[in-house]
Amino acid sequence: MTATPPTPHPHEALIRRYFDACNAADYQALMSCFTPDAVHYFPPGLPEIPWRSADTISKKWLWCVENLGSQWTIEKVLVSHNSNEAVIEWTHWKRKFNTAQRGDEWYVFDETTGLIKEIRAYYAAPAVKDTAELPVVHGTHMGELVAFDYAGRGYHLRCE
């Protein structure tokens, strides 16, 4: 008998729906994930940050898919048991430039609607060029943690 996988927490389910909408470049699906006044914060380096409003966030991700060939994978999800927050690890694949970047995001969900009202993105390291053959420094692929067993822990090693 096969065990039924557990039903994901509603916050995790929404995050996964959000990533699916990003990957599909689906504006309406993206909009449905956010409160109208949502904010997405980033580390320095990107223009026009933070992104303020569901409309802005949705349009910026559409731009990334169209212009960078962006696709994202979720590596890990942790949902708080006592607050409206969650954190994930992700990989952002920029296929038109053959680069990848790993990082994590902290999510805050609206208490009334359950929608995403804030995302705080943090990058693990600078983006890596030429993901077909990631450069190795001190035994570690650039853009990844030193001595961390990505393959052994089930992380995506290429954009699928």
Rank of each mutant, 00 (worst) to 15 (best):
T2D: 10
A3V: 12
P5Y: 07
P6R: 07
H9E: 09
H11C: 04
H11N: 13
H11D: 05
H11Q: 13
E12C: 03
L14H: 07
L14T: 07
R17M: 01
R17F: 02
F19V: 15
A25G: 09
D26H: 12
Y27Q: 12
Y27F: 15
Y27R: 15
Q28M: 09
A29N: 08
L30K: 06
M31C: 08
M31Y: 03
S32Q: 13
D37G: 02
A38W: 02
F42Y: 15
P43R: 09
P43N: 10
P44M: 08
P44Q: 12
P44S: 13
G45Y: 08
L46N: 10
E48P: 00
I49G: 02
P50V: 07
P50F: 05
W51K: 08
W51Y: 13
W51I: 00
S53K: 03
S58I: 07
K59G: 00
K60S: 10
K60L: 08
L62Q: 14
W63C: 05
C64S: 14
C64I: 00
E66V: 02
L68I: 03
L68F: 12
G69N: 09
S70I: 09
S70E: 11
Q71L: 06
Q71S: 14
Q71E: 11
W72H: 09
W72T: 08
I74H: 01
E75L: 02
K76H: 13
V77R: 03
V79T: 10
V79N: 03
S80Q: 03
S80I: 01
S83I: 01
S83D: 11
N84A: 13
V87W: 03
I88R: 01
H92R: 13
H92Q: 11
W93S: 07
W93L: 10
K94G: 11
R95G: 04
R95I: 08
K96M: 11
F97V: 13
G103Y: 05
E105K: 02
E105T: 14
E105L: 03
Y107F: 15
F109P: 00
D110Q: 05
E111D: 11
T112H: 06
T112M: 02
G114E: 02
L115R: 13
K117D: 02
I119D: 01
Y122A: 10
Y122G: 06
Y123C: 06
A124T: 15
P126G: 11
P126Y: 11
K129A: 15
T131W: 15
L134K: 14
P135L: 11
P135Y: 06
H138S: 12
E144R: 15
E144Y: 09
L145H: 10
V146N: 07
V146Q: 13
A147F: 09
F148P: 06
F148S: 06
D149Y: 10
Y150V: 06
Y150F: 14
G152I: 09
G154L: 07
Y155G: 02
H156W: 10
L157Q: 14
L157G: 08
